[in-house]
Write a protein that binds this DNA or RNA. Structure first.
Lengths: 114, 114
DNA sequence: ATAACGTACAACCAAATGGTTGCACAACGA
DNA sequence: TCGTTGTGCAACCATTTGGTTGTACGTTAT
């Protein structure tokens, strides 16, 4: 899926099909490359479920699939969450350690016995 | 940048280096492939600014760069925003048109004059 | 000093990728 | 009917990619 997003042409196709549903040839007319090249890019996006196609007469209308974009974003959000939990863990360590520096008995009963 | 994220090995390296900073050889020991292969993956991630390296003795310690992960997520969030604004535009059209169907005079004074 | 370790880089290779042209075929319009 | 349009697919080609091994070089340990 990230692979499908890795090309600027494909991201551009995605952007256009978010804005409005359009046929493959309409899309192809927007780029310098051949129709077949664009058609293959569309196929890659379709395989990644980032777009869906709908038949209308001889045309194939392409529209973005917001569900999959959301999934990609959620995955990256999870990485950020991992990072935040790492920071949290470091904070925990920094919050705990000082006690064992000032007090080698390291018995955490101080709070419990209070 | 999406290209750097397009391989599961690199996403895994990113995940590991989010959790804690570690040397290239430590990372390499986690995978079946050769050290050189992992080192190249690290280089790709570094070129995309998704990780940063720090020299410590003979080792190169690798850690994730949360700023870049956030940027990728933000970009995808923008696509979602585009989608939402498209929906909003359609809603606007649907909210305006019905008047000319039920009432050809399409004078919206009904509320104003009430 | 010398061996072992960690890293970087070059050369090489097979497979995937992004592009091309050409062809087949269904749907539309004259 | 017949030409045109829209699509999909196969074959082909150049480049990139993901992997390998080998080499070089600085750092650490014995």
């Amino acid at each position: 899926m990230f692979h499908a997003l890795a090309t600027s042409t494909r991201r551009d196709i995605l952007r256009r099909t978010i804005e409005r549903e359009q046929s493959v040839s309409t899309l192809a007319s927007e780029y310098e490359m051949s129709f077949a090249a664009v058609q293959k890019h569309v196929a890659v996006l379709e395989a990644a479920n980032l777009i869906v196609k709908r038949a209308e007469g001889r045309e194939r209308l392409v529209r973005a699939n917001p569900e999959m974009i959301a999934r990609a974003r959620a995955l990256l959000a999870r990485y950020e969450e991992l990072w935040r939990s790492r920071i949290a863990r470091l904070d925990d360590l920094l919050a705990e350690k000082p006690a064992s520096i000032t007090d080698t008995t390291d018995v955490p009963r101080t709070e419990e016995g209070d």
